[in-house]
Design a protein around this nucleic acid. Structure first.
Length: 473
RNA sequence: GACCCCAUCGUCUAGUGGCCUAGGACUCCGCUCUUUCAAGGCGGCAACACGGGUUCGAACCCCGUUGGGGUCACCA
């Protein structure tokens, strides 16, 4: 009989002090993937114990970001602040058991302590001066904090699933504050109690929490609880190797949404940042779930690279269902147009989408490239398009219009045949006809195949656009 | 400053002692396809930070150096 392993329960625990940024999104993704891979549970906990910095808007932004990314959590989100009383109770219990104590140090005293330590080249730690003093010595009028009495000798080891075994001397860790002077619990206490109460089996979070893991391990032991498994994933850096700044990728996921990235592209990109499965690059979520494991997570930080994100996004746009793309495009284009898009316009987008999408890296670009289908006459010409419409070209258009008007069947193949025949009759190369035609129809020098464009635009609109640019005779 | 962590092409990475004259992807550059622009196909440039060991043999193991990062709150 082998012992059945405890069920996998992971959590994403952001503090609602801002939007869901790209690093947080990756942490959430890894937690989600790990839970889904093991058929476990992925929970969400809002760490809102800092009342001054936490906002409802931030909570909403985080939930929206996760939802957009498709990272669904199990059960209700836990709001940490609501559990403050439970946390405080555990601090008091430790106090009663003699595992914690009151400390009456003033902020000034603590600052002085750090200053001295720094000057002497030691770690800036609390020296434990109230460890063994009784309340009788308490200065009047100073509300105490409760500190945990941690071992001063020996070492604390965590078996990190990503970093491997990491050891730190207990002398490097000081007696952490559990309960503030105002009676509210600190982050360190709240996290430990909540992770225990929520039965979290794996704590997967950013590298910046690695040192917290030591303190939390000590707290778990003081409470006679078994610590969860830890996995500290490397942070994402900016393109310059420095910490991710707002300038680069430290934007909220909603900013990526607005820029026209698809959630599956962002997921794929974030997954490959610090994790690999052989040479695989395109990894849709189903396969990601099947393949994901902490053992394949790299130990070194990765830089954020927009080019690769763009490439992936382009791939997923090409793969995307046209109806879905039109749905995403419509509000975007209506905002740019300042008017609603009618059924005829939607139909043009639906038909044009297929060949338009191979030309775009983002939805923003796709919308821009599709704009000519909805533009009102007379079209505005880009400089390059204007250059194509020299007088000779305009004269050609003047002759081409009537030639096309005679067509019985306004279809892509018929139009192709007709234009080719026209070019031959003119003694011109196809390009000499097609480019001015493109400029007249799209206002640009680059577009999908011109016969397709004419077919989608329809006879009336196409001929009118040609007439707009044709030399008046 | 103290403690901890990291180190393969410009970037993301494969690689766990011989399969590596180091593979893939992005970027960039050619060629091809072509009515334009893309996409696609083909090809190219480009890396084991450095110095010592261990070993018959090191990108892979050990030590050091250098470089980078993280943490040192009554913030999370």
């Amino acid at each position: 009989m082998s012992a059945t392993p405890p069920p996998v329960v992971t959590r994403f625990a952001p503090s609602p002090t801002g939007f869901l940024h790209i690093g947080g999104a990756r942490t959430a993704l890894f937690n989600w993937l790990f839970a889904r891979h093991h058929g476990g549970t992925f929970r969400l906990r809002i760490e809102d114990t800092d009342r001054k910095r936490s906002t409802e808007e931030a909570v909403a932004a985080i939930l929206e970001g996760l939802t957009w990314l498709g990272l669904d959590w199990d059960g209700e989100a836990v709001h940490q602040f609501a559990r403050a009383e439970r946390h405080a109770e555990m601090a008091r219990q430790l106090l009663a058991e003699g595992k914690a104590y009151h400390c009456y140090c003033t902020p000034e005293e603590l600052a002085e302590m750090r200053e001295t330590a720094r000057a002497e080249g030691r770690a800036m730690l609390y020296d434990g001066r109230w460890r063994d003093r009784g309340p009788a010595e308490a200065p009047p009028g100073v509300p105490p904090v409760i500190r945990l009495k941690v071992p001063r000798e020996g070492e604390t080891v965590i078996e990190d699933l990503v970093q491997g075994p990491v050891t730190v001397a207990n002398a490097q860790l000081d007696d952490m504050v559990l309960l503030r002077a105002d009676g509210t619990p600190t982050y360190m206490l709240s996290v430990v109690v909540d992770d225990h109460d929520m039965e979290i089996s794996h704590v997967i979070r950013g590298d910046d929490h690695l040192t917290n893991a030591f303190r939390q391990t000590q707290l778990f032991k003081a409470l006679d609880w078994t610590p969860p498994a830890f996995a500290h994933i490397p942070l994402i850096h900016g393109p310059d190797g420095a910490k991710l700044s707002k300038r680069h990728g430290a934007l909220g996921v909603e900013a990526y949404r607005e820029m026209g990235y698809l959630p599956e592209a962002l997921r794929n990109y974030l997954l490959r940042l610090g994790w690999a499965h052989g040479d695989e690059e395109i990894i849709p979520s189903e396969r990601a779930i099947a393949w994901f494991g902490l053992d394949a997570v790299g130990k070194s930080p990765a830089r954020f690279d927009v080019d690769k994100l763009n490439n992936l996004n382009g791939h997923y746009i090409r793969e995307a269902d046209n109806a879905r793309l039109v749905g995403l495009l419509t509000p975007r284009m209506e905002a740019a147009l300042g008017r609603a898009i009618g059924e005829a316009g939607r139909e043009r987008l639906r038909m044009g989408c297929e060949s338009l999408k191979v030309r775009a890296k983002t939805l923003a670009e796709l919308a821009e490239n599709a704009a000519f289908y909805l533009a009102e006459r007379p079209l505005e010409l880009t400089p390059k398009a204007a250059k194509l419409l020299r007088p000779e070209a305009r004269q050609i258009l003047a002759r081409l219009g009537p030639a096309l008007d005679g067509l019985n069947d306004w279809s892509e193949p018929e139009l192709g045949e007709a234009v080719r025949a026209f070019a031959e009759a003119e003694g011109a190369k196809l390009g000499q006809i097609a480019q001015p035609l493109r400029a007249a129809l799209t206002g640009s020098h680059a577009s999908p195949g011109i016969f397709e464009v004419m077919a989608i635009l329809g006879r009336g609109e196409s001929l009118a656009r040609i007439r707009d640019q044709a030399e008046k005779i």
